[in-house]
């Protein structure tokens, strides 16, 4: 059974306040029936260093990705994963992680591909929990194995493939990478290795809104009025838009997908997980360089 929602005032302005919980709410609800807390980090060892008591780890690299094909696990694989983590189909899942919840948002997006209904993010992520001095443990829970139904992944609603992006051109595209990656100075985030794409730049007509513009100084999501400023006034998005977000491999753009979908209430937002590591290496797709979006190409 789903757990009650966090009625914190800060969340009230968001389109779907039920998608976020505060650290205080989580601490108070730890151990509740029907609540599973999931940690999903970029650093695969971070959970082992210490995690929220009772939280299980979901590793994006080894558990959410298919080991052979560049794709996510299938319905049977997801059902096995959920069973192993002790998650029921009707459970409330709260996900948190390092780096401002990049990988947590990515995991949440993958859970959503499988239609897991009640999945929320911890506002502020792992850093907030730790900075506030809340309890952590290295003790790993041994969840009771559950029976989770095999649900086929739905790639149509919130996931975009390269061909979808080609036909999407002319509609809003949000490139959430750093300005240096967008302009084509480099193919990877600053301080990350140069790797992953043969060409640098952005998809023509995409607006550059780095993911971090959605985050306040304390690591939590900005209030709705500030988000409106960034995405509506700043990036020109308006109600009814069909939007695609992308980054390098789809993790930072999951973060923006979460903001646009759950905090601002846009109904047609897709994450292009192939992102720049695919587009920047694909043959004959249009690319723009420099700081301007560039015009919509005819393809």
């Amino acid at each position: 059974m789903p757990v009650e929602i966090d009625s914190t005032e800060k969340f009230a302005g968001y389109a779907h306040p039920e998608r976020l919980v505060t650290t205080a709410w989580l601490e108070e609800h730890l151990g509740s029936d029907g609540l599973v807390v999931v940690e999903s980090d970029e650093d695969v060892l971070l959970y082992e260093v210490g995690h929220i008591p009772g939280a299980v780890k979901v590793d994006w690299h080894t558990e959410l990705n298919d080991p052979v094909q560049r794709d996510y696990i299938d319905g049977a694989g997801f059902a096995r994963l959920m069973a192993r983590k002790g998650i029921e189909r009707t459970d409330t899942v709260v996900i948190y992680g390092d780096k401002n919840n990049w990988w947590a948002a990515y995991a949440l997006w993958v859970f959503t591909l499988f239609g897991h209904e009640d999945v929320r993010l911890l506002d502020g992520g792992r850093d907030a929990w730790i900075a506030e001095g809340r309890a952590v443990t290295t003790e790993k829970p041994e969840p009771r194995r559950t029976t989770y139904p095999v649900v086929e992944r739905d790639d149509t609603a919130i996931r975009a493939f390269k061909d979808d992006v080609l036909t999407h051109l002319g509609n809003p595209l949000i490139d959430v990478r750093s300005p240096e990656e967008y302009s084509g100075e480099r193919t990877t985030a600053p301080a990350y290795p140069e790797e992953g794409a043969l060409r640098a730049g952005h998809i023509p007509s995409a607006r550059n809104v780095p993911w971090g513009k959605a985050v306040a100084d304390d690591g939590t999501f900005k209030p709705v009025v500030d988000l409106e400023e960034v995405y509506r006034a700043g990036a020109g998005l308006s109600d009814g838009d069909d939007i695609v977000a992308y980054c390098r491999i789809g993790e930072r753009s999951s973060h923006t997908w979460f903001v646009l979908t759950h905090l601002l209430g846009f109904e047609n937002v897709r994450n292009y997980d192939g992102s720049w590591t695919e587009w920047g290496s694909a043959v004959r797709v249009p690319i723009a360089t420099g700081t301007e979006p560039g015009s919509v190409p005819s393809v």
Partner: peptide, 8 residues
């Protein structure tokens, strides 16, 4: 400390 893989 919060980057155990790198530290390792």
């Amino acid at each position: 400390e919060q980057a155990p893989t790198t530290r390792g």
